[in-house]
């Protein structure tokens, strides 16, 4: 890749310019991360008076804990569902919008709004809509004979957080898909139409493969989002319940650490999460930056 080089006459100035950013990163990211790594190897007594170095004890316990393993599988279900739902709905919307050219700006603007809503507000919104006593959705569902109660039913609860989390991510995906679709030359679609491919076939054999760099990028981003960025939504809707049904990793870190005050275990969990992020980012850099396939 070609990069532009700027030559500074002063040797110190470039470093000076980097200092604020580096300082912020150091104080708010690197330092807490190192702290987490450190405390993941320690055990603290319940009153916080004494810490002992326990090697991998916290990790060993985690992987022996059925609650943690349960949370792991809940996270897998949650992240997969959110990613699949958010990406497929946004792709559908993007394709639909790029078909109606005249009003597409209006639709685009409207569809991007959810992204500007804070996660907790999203959570509250959905909590309100699906509130078993006062919400509109359970009321309508009852009409169809569905008894919705995410306070009792674990499946309902999972559905609710998946919907809420996907809803917020759809706008983001949508923007990228719209841009991706626009970068596919119209003449390719026309050539395929002349080559005898109907709209469905055109989509699956031409558009979708050409969109794969965008899709792959979004895949990583969405997994990241579902795994690490959905704390607010879960906290505002189900708080991990009922009976751990929606207690995904990122929420469990919080509840074990701040509610359960088990700092050692919580730190070990966040280190594991960090490793997952690093792995995902590495995959992303390796494949997305070097472009996919063709």
């Amino acid at each position: 890749m070609q990069t532009k080089r700027t030559i500074f006459p002063n040797k110190v100035l470039p470093y000076l310019l980097l200092v604020p950013q580096l300082a912020v990163t150091l104080v708010f990211f690197i330092w807490p991360a190192l702290q987490a790594v450190k405390s993941s190897f320690e055990r603290e007594d319940p009153f916080g008076f004494k810490t002992t170095f326990v090697w991998f004890e916290n990790y060993r316990r985690l992987f022996a804990d059925p609650n943690y393993l349960g949370s792991l599988s809940k996270t897998a279900v949650f992240a997969t569902s959110v990613t699949v739902l958010a990406m497929s709905v946004s792709l559908l919307l993007a394709v639909a919008v790029s078909r109606v050219l005249r009003t597409s700006r209006l639709y685009t603007t409207l569809l991007v709004w959810p992204y500007a809503v804070a996660p907790v507000v999203v959570g509250v919104l959905w909590w309100f809509m699906f509130n078993p006593t006062i919400g509109i959705a359970p009321y309508i569902l009852r009409g169809f004979g569905v008894d919705w109660n995410h306070r009792v039913d674990g499946v309902d609860a999972m559905l609710l957080v998946v919907m809420a989390a996907s809803w917020k991510q759809i706008s983001y995906n949508f923007l990228f898909f719209v841009a991706g679709l626009q970068s596919i030359p119209q003449s390719l679609i026309e050539a395929a139409a002349i080559d005898g491919a109907g709209p469905f076939k055109r989509f699956w054999t031409i558009v979708f493969p050409l969109l794969s760099p965008t899709t792959f990028f979004l895949l990583i981003i969405n997994i990241n989002y579902a795994m690490f960025d959905t704390f607010g939504i879960i906290d505002a809707t189900t708080q991990g319940g009922p009976a751990q049904a929606t207690n995904v990793l990122v929420y469990k870190v919080y509840s074990d650490g701040f509610l359960g005050l088990n700092i050692g275990s919580s730190s070990a969990q966040s280190v594991i999460l960090m490793i997952v992020v690093i792995a995902l980012t590495a995959v992303q850099f390796r494949y997305v930056e070097r472009r996919v396939q063709y």
Binding site: P185, S187, L188, E190, A191, A192, A193, I194, D195, G196, A197, G198, I206, P209, L210, S212, Q293, Y294
Partner: peptide, 20 residues
């Protein structure tokens, strides 16, 4: 009729080859 049903072939200025 749709382009496909007309049984014609077209050569585009930018060739429009399927890159993948």
């Amino acid at each position: 009729k749709e382009p496909a049903e007309r049984d014609i072939a077209m050569v585009f200025q930018n060739y429009a080859l399927y890159p993948h």
